[in-house]
């Protein structure tokens, strides 16, 4: 099987309960390096929970997570980030009163010097690091929207939803991660805005060669357009996987979406 030759993320039997509810039920999920994987399924099928377990927000009650050859089962959120996995959130989570630049730099944490001595007393060296990162943030956000790049010093709460999504994705990408997890990036946006954002993501991906993406999305147009491979969840279990064409014609999937048992 050539799919196993260049595995980036390998989840085996991932399980997570909330009280009596089984949100993830022995989920196996493999992502190859460089691919865009669509994670779809009806509401409450465990998609976000899968992200939360992989990124260390929730512990797993069973199963294993292997990433890039390292065991990340029940790793802390910090360890997950440092190994190169970043995410966006279904309900956008930004520091609204901080500037665009500040928000992007939160995502750059692993590449910034947080030493006390450096930050408090070596202000010259700090200024250099600041300028270098400012230029990088500018360059990255320019790919999404050049006017936005000129407004790095404005608070995020002055921007509309599409810009906030762009900023959130820049926050995720600034540290050159290996795997990006997008949780419903289209939420709160119009169809046209969504399509525009997807184009931007594809452009960025070309620049950051080798970026792997898992995207959760309800808009099937988006999934069809950008994914190489899809996994369909229902009740925390994988019910189908393959190309979008294959899963969209699968009878199990149609049943799950129509709610017929």
């Amino acid at each position: 099987m050539n799919r196993s030759s260049d595995l980036l993320l390998d989840c085996q039997g991932l399980t997570r309960h909330f009280g009596g509810l089984v949100a993830l039920d022995g989920l196996d999920l493999q992502v190859r390096e460089g691919e865009i994987l669509g994670l779809i399924g009806p509401n409450g099928s465990g998609k976000t929970t899968m992200f939360n377990v992989v990124t260390g927000i929730y512990g797993a009650h069973g199963g294993r997570v292997e990433f890039d050859g390292n065991d990340l089962t029940n790793a802390t959120a910090q360890q997950v980030y440092r190994s190169g996995i970043v995410r966006t959130f279904q309900r956008s989570r930004m520091c609204l009163e901080l500037s665009v630049f500040d928000n992007i730099m939160v995502g750059n944490h692993r590449r910034l010097n947080h030493g006390l001595w450096f930050n408090l007393f070596k202000r010259g060296a700090f200024a250099d690091q600041y300028k270098k990162n400012y230029a990088e943030a500018h360059e990255l956000i320019e790919i999404f929207d050049p006017p936005l790049a000129e407004r790095l010093d404005f608070p995020v709460d002055t921007f509309p939803m599409i810009d906030r999504r762009r900023i959130e994705i820049c926050r995720a990408l600034i540290s050159h991660p290996k795997l990006l997890l997008l949780d419903e990036p289209s939420a709160g946006m119009t169809h046209d805005e969504t399509m525009q954002l997807m184009d931007d993501i594809l452009t960025v991906r070309k620049r950051l060669s080798g970026l792997t993406i898992i995207i959760i999305e309800h808009e099937m147009g988006v999934i069809e357009r950008i994914t190489d491979h899809c996994v369909v969840l229902n009740f925390g279990r994988k019910i189908c996987e393959g190309t979008f064409k294959k899963v969209s014609t699968d009878s199990n999937v149609q049943e799950a979406y129509l709610g017929v048992e």
Binding site: T55, I57, T76, A77, Y81, R93, H109
Partner: peptide
């Protein structure tokens, strides 16, 4: 401002 997002960024 946001502990969860902060934790996810290390």
């Amino acid at each position: 401002l946001d502990e969860t997002a902060s934790a996810c960024y290390g």
